[in-house]
Amino acid sequence: MTKVTLTVNGKAVSREVEQRTLLVQLLRDDPASGGLGLTGTHVGCDTSQCGACTVHVDGMAVKSCTMLAVEAEGAAVTTIEGMANADGSLSPLQQAFQDHHGLQCGFCTPGMVMTAAALLAENPTPSESAVRYYLEGNICRCTGYHGIVKAIMAASGQDMPAMAAE
């Protein structure tokens, strides 16, 4: 077991983990089993394809199933639980997902929000095709991405008049 110390959603945490423990396991596992109990981050595959486990590590969108917990030593990790406004209300990006029906079953949603936040940090006014390209590592099976793309565009302050008709 190795001790790992990191910051998660602004709070310093320290845990004993196995060398093989993945970051997503550390985040999700029950506190009784040595995890942080942050179950908002999801696991949807085992080949680093679906992006449901996306979190921010030092500001970068990272698939937490593809990173060992020990690699996060000293890092600042943000999960979906750390994305709302300080008063607990939805952030503008989260609000845009609700406003534009960017989620149905909700399982891919945390990863989508984290990836979208990383995109908007890099490129505050992405084109529709830039949004779709950036989402290449996140799979949604419910929405056909329609509402997700609309939500991200809206969160970036851009109108999509072509979409208004439908």
């Binding site: 999700r28 981050t41 696991v43 939805l90 989260q94 997902f97 406003d99 989620l103």
Partner: peptide, 23 residues
């Protein structure tokens, strides 16, 4: 109407089966 269930899903507070850990 906007979906009320979205609030918990967007904030990481959904409760899926894998989120359940029994003593």
């Amino acid at each position: 109407t906007k979906r009320r269930e979205d609030i918990r899903f967007l904030t990481g507070r959904g409760r899926y089966t894998d989120d359940i850990n029994l003593r």
